[in-house]
Design a protein around this nucleic acid. Sequence first.
DNA 1: CGGCATTCTGCACACGTGTGCACATACTCT
DNA 2: AGAGTATGTGCACACGTGTGCAGAATGCCG
Lengths: 350, 350
Amino acid sequence: MKLRGMFRAVHSKKVGSMTIKNRVGRRRVTAQDVADLAGVSRYAVSRAFTLGGYVESEKRQRIQKAAEALGYRPNALASGLQGGRSDLVAIFVGEMPNEYDKEVASQLVIGLNTAGKWPIVIGGSEKSARDAVSNVLRYPLEAMILRSGSMDVEIVTDCIKLGIPVISSGRVMSQKGVDNICIKNAEGAAKLTRLLIDNGRRRIGYIGGADGFWSSIERRRGVLDVLSANGLSLVAEANGNYTMQQSQQVAADILDHQPDAIICANDVMAIGAIGAIRERGLMVPQHISVVGFDDIAIAAWSELALTTIRNPVDQLVRTVVDLLERRSKEPNKPEETIFLDAELVIRGSH
Amino acid sequence: MKLRGMFRAVHSKKVGSMTIKNRVGRRRVTAQDVADLAGVSRYAVSRAFTLGGYVESEKRQRIQKAAEALGYRPNALASGLQGGRSDLVAIFVGEMPNEYDKEVASQLVIGLNTAGKWPIVIGGSEKSARDAVSNVLRYPLEAMILRSGSMDVEIVTDCIKLGIPVISSGRVMSQKGVDNICIKNAEGAAKLTRLLIDNGRRRIGYIGGADGFWSSIERRRGVLDVLSANGLSLVAEANGNYTMQQSQQVAADILDHQPDAIICANDVMAIGAIGAIRERGLMVPQHISVVGFDDIAIAAWSELALTTIRNPVDQLVRTVVDLLERRSKEPNKPEETIFLDAELVIRGSH
DNA sequence: CGGCATTCTGCACACGTGTGCACATACTCT
DNA sequence: AGAGTATGTGCACACGTGTGCAGAATGCCG
């Protein structure tokens, strides 16, 4: 029997009765421990835990029993060290200010779990997250998944430099090594605009998202294109910063221009706008139409019945996982940019 | 100059011109690479990246420059292997069916990031997550943070067995090695009930959360205690499963019992209830009072003005981080159970 | 019985980093 | 000058696992 396995103490390398007893936080149980208990070699334990390993079946049973008893799990750090799949993935999710962002983050996590990946999530403001990302890159990540409208490009170049593939969702980046997945923002916004015009609306106002967000720019473009194609222009416009409170505030200004419809760059802002309208004693959609974007859960609430664009989270997640797996299998495959269809959800607010 | 550092190929151990060129996924840059470029020893590089390390300042600069150029980052797997802080934490978040759950999960992630921890997030249904947790325990976690009302106890015992401290938020567990952090559920529910009674409400209905959830049981208890102390009992009761749709459906049944108030175990269910009430042409609070629990963002919306109990996410996050840090510092400290105050938020729906 | 394929086992090494120890050098104080 | 302290450097080892290689044991077939 090997002394090494028996008398290893954690906080001191000296061997002796003094040091053995002060094992404060129990030492992690290793393959050697299992081997000692089962009366086999460490290598047999290692082979019993890998798929193609040759181990005598009776011995394998003894090992599994011992491992069970000790609660042994191969140390992921040690096994990851020799370069196989790490199954670690990072998700950068920004500040998640609104419901849709949180929904996407949640579903992404669940989807990745189902695919057997461990997502390390990084959130918060860009500048605080900058350091965090840099630090998390110390792990051998299989991919960095970006889910933030606004995004420090340096983060991407850092990843690429380290050979870590990037999957950007919600913003299309044309850098080498970046796969993209994004809803057809302009098309969705155009559909909403056309719907309103078809319904006879002519005095259309717009509440946009935060500056610098990719989706914000694209959606606004979709609105303006359709308007100008119909010889129209916005009667008023404001920045709602993608939040309900801000939107409700700026909607008041827009109402001063007597619009007959307000297009909002996302659903929570539409809710804010509806609040502002009803506060004035006006009704939706009888006096003013309101449409949103994303189709978050509450948009279907009977008191809102928000007409909006479905931004399909399930498809998004499936596609991200698919891109990830294909990229893992074939690291040098050409970059892809996948656009998700923007489906109009007709309810009662238009 | 060492050959080892120069001619290491990734997918083959044979050294020769054939194997060198087929380095598909670039090999990760190591401390040796930085040392070679900077013309120093590997140990100097290692010391330059650790806090107390003695390195000549001129040499340190050369190293940092070389590291920058190569994009070097110490491999977290390798450094984590020798037993220091891993900074890895797992969060188990269940299915996150409602807004509040997602909000908590999001803020927990951000709070942990700020504290310099890397949260590996595990979500989804209990039974799918069971395997996931077991697998993620291969990593040397500093703690397992539970954020799920219902919870497989086996997960906890697995962690304890491995010496991984558990921090449970939202449910109090009396197991060894588990710190708890939880809002005063019963007290909050009691406050809501008293408020309604003080307002003259007598025919009170209740929409509860999903079965088996700790918070669900506690909140219901708080309601019943106050009612019976006032010689009252519920006129109707239903299970809203913590979701808006379900709640709106079951609220219809409750309305058949002519209540003058409905207490909901969380805000999204209150929103569902309000939907059901308004669909019947009744008004809140003129005809029926509705109160919720959690104070999610939309509860403050002018069209809802939901009276509710503040379930303070910021305090929760701060406390979790604090418990985590104190537990890390002192692994054998006695378990703590911290209760957060349930503050009544008076708006217009009661 | 010999030749061969299959199954099993032990050894050695690799993965990349941090750090205690021993030693070297430089600087300060009496 | 000598003693003592602060600073810098190289070596060796540890962390825990997976796996190629070589060899052993076993079984099969002619």
